[in-house]
Design a protein around this nucleic acid. Structure first.
Lengths: 237, 237
DNA sequence: TAGTGGTCTAGACCACTGG
DNA sequence: CAGTGGTCTAGACCACTAT
């Protein structure tokens, strides 16, 4: 009746999630403890059960709650920590940082994929893919070195594209939407090629990003991206 | 055509999201193009509008759709790709890999935080925190080296805990729920201490994880974790 | 101003699973 | 078997914003 909240948006589910989060953080509800069921909370907060459900699902997705039918909802014992990273398009990332974007293709040719790459994307070894090496620059300084394999059968018209004058990343984003993607981070010492491409000493620690994408007909592309020293991937944006 | 999912539950929202995803991937609905509004889709699919709404919000969260009031829903021009990583508790990660977990505290003392650390968590430099260095082992081999600073004011009773016989990570997880966390990945060449702690050559490329947490009263802890060579963080699980 | 997504509600039925 | 979360529905009103 008198829920007036002048001027402020008030998604009730958010408010409820915040209140539950507060009770957990302030140890009103202890780890492992069962909290009231949805119907009770709905009465307590004066909202519909669906609203409580939405709020609690939010917190369960965050890993703060464990929910099971019949067993009820408990404060998680081992809060699973999830981190969401947005994987930007290189050009946008560089331009957003106020730098001038540049792009140079080092090599483009068809060749049989190496065994390791074949295993990574789950195709028989020895198949011919399009192999592409390119460097992305920000203000003339090497930003990323990308080593990419593209499945020529994955997208019609792919054979006719000349990636020497066309950013492969962006072409693929626009022409080959994918259904599934794998992303992995690791660290490697720069080998001779990495060092040459990025203009850094051999042995320099580099953040390496592996990304592969598939659609319903099979793999589209897999790429190893070596980032310039100092590159940081963060949830903080 | 054949959306059969034998034995699997079929929440309608999931099915609808899958169908919309399919239409996008198969270019039935092109990038930038407007798709029918929720009411139309509800009729098309024979469900309530709320169900369509849920499905489309899923896809918008994935970055596949752009939705705006009054303007309608469009296939995203630059699909923003989000990756969700779960940050496991070290012990569980090691034990899940079938290895024996070990843990050794190298140092614990109060000391003033370095400027860089202070800046990272947003407190004035020079404050005294609890400084902790520890190594986590899997089957007797160094797995991670952690260098942690804990705010003594963040959790009551913290002063009395002896982390030499108590895993700091797990104690904090259970006793200091947080409201906000930042996580960042980067790569560094092992310095002398990293090398000694992990038993690797100096200069070895290491994946570095920085994590900081806050509750409503301020920072709780910030930690730099150096992972053993070969460590990979992946969405694939 | 009107069209579109955002959210809520009250009620219903179902799916799972603990006791 | 019965209690709890999972999901759906039909309807409603609101918040934004393109036109």
């Amino acid at each position: 009746m008198n829920d007036r909240q002048p001027g402020s948006t008030s998604p009730k589910a958010q408010l409820i999630a915040g209140e539950v989060r507060r009770r957990i953080v302030e140890r009103e509800w202890q780890q492992g403890e069962r909290i009231p069921d949805e119907a009770d909370l709905a009465v307590t907060f004066g909202v519909a059960r669906a609203t409580v459900n939405k709020a609690l699902q939010l917190l369960a997705d965050e890993g703060l709650l464990d929910r099971r039918r019949r067993a009820g909802t408990r404060v998680a014992l081992n809060p699973v920590r999830k981190a969401i990273f947005t994987i930007p398009i290189v050009r946008e990332q560089i331009e957003r940082a106020g730098m001038k974007y540049g792009h140079r293709v080092v090599a483009q040719r068809r060749s049989p994929i190496p065994d390791e790459t074949a295993a990574r994307i789950g195709v028989p070894p020895g198949r011919e893919f399009i192999h592409l090496r390119a460097v992305h620059y920000g203000d003339e300084r090497a930003f990323q070195f990308e080593d990419r394999w593209i499945n020529p059968d994955s997208v019609p018209g792919l054979d006719k594209v000349d990636f020497r004058h066309q950013n492969a990343n962006e072409w693929l984003v626009r022409n080959a939407p994918y259904l599934r993607a794998d992303i992995a981070f690791s660290a490697e010492n720069a080998d001779a090629r990495d060092a040459r491409m990025l203009g850094v000493p051999k042995g320099q620690a580099l953040l390496i990003l592996h990304r592969s994408t598939w659609n319903d007909t099979g793999p589209i592309t897999t790429v190893r991206i070596a980032c310039h020293p100092g590159y940081v991937i963060s949830t903080a944006d």
